[in-house]
Design a binder for these strands. Structure first.
Lengths: 133, 133
DNA sequence: CAGCATCCGACACGATACTG
DNA sequence: CAGTATCGTGTCGGATGCTG
């Protein structure tokens, strides 16, 4: 199956160095951060306005939304379109690059969806064991 | 292609709620955090000792390594095997669940490997635009 | 509506020192 | 070797208030 291949590929990619001083690490940290993943996920469904995103993501502050959106735009993953109306309408959407990221990213999110119960169960078992000790 | 399907699937999964109060978010935050991704990646290559991981990940402190390893073990992604020798030998490896995560995760890492140049270029362009004003 | 500026608390993280 | 304990700092991130 494809999954085994992917692991093998990554293994080949990763076994030869320590990742240290890799210029991609900050970008990856930002892109896989708490809010960025959710923002990108929300934008998969199509373009959103600022307030729409604020509602869709749920629990995010305006500051963090604005901040993440700016970082995402800087990396070329999200496009910011301003309509010169009054009041101003700002629309965010995924760029082509952003769409290409959506595949792997939703693959990861999907995994959490499928295995969430196992993760929760493992944690409970781990905690009860510690309590027993 | 499969990527388009995946996006569509995630879209269906995600469009109906705001992700708020999802019990998986803390786990996903932890698992996709700065160090956890690198630790899991390192373990794809096979079991590692503590010191080996410390060298492989590169830049991580003992504290963070220990802390992340504990969290990963709590979630059932990593197994911790202690050999009762002297000095003690502790070996970490991916569990079955951890291996199943490796697929989606390396898919994401692979994407960054393939598109790293584009991300860096986009940032430079963005920054130079800002400088121009 | 779509942000930015500011203040402030919480915790992530690293450096160091200590243990079995 | 494989950690734990403690301390100090930096950044994350929320609440509030203001602008255009």
């Amino acid at each position: 199956m494809a999954e085994t291949e992917q692991v093998a590929t990554a293994s080949r990619l990763l076994t030869h160095d320590t990742f240290d001083k890799c210029p991609l690490r900050p970008i990856m940290d930002q892109t896989t951060s708490r809010w960025a993943t959710l923002i990108i996920s929300a934008l998969i469904g199509g373009p959103h306005r600022f307030a729409q995103l604020h509602a869709r993501v749920g629990g995010i502050s305006q500051k963090m939304l604005s901040q993440n959106l700016k970082a995402l735009a800087r990396s070329g993953l999200v496009a910011r379109d301003v309509a010169p109306t009054n009041p101003p309408q700002v629309t965010y959407s995924l760029t082509e690059l952003g769409v290409s990221l959506a595949g792997p990213l939703t693959g990861l999110i999907g995994w959490f969806g499928r295995h969430g119960d196992e993760l929760l169960a493992a944690q409970q078992q781990y905690d009860s064991q510690s309590a027993d000790g």
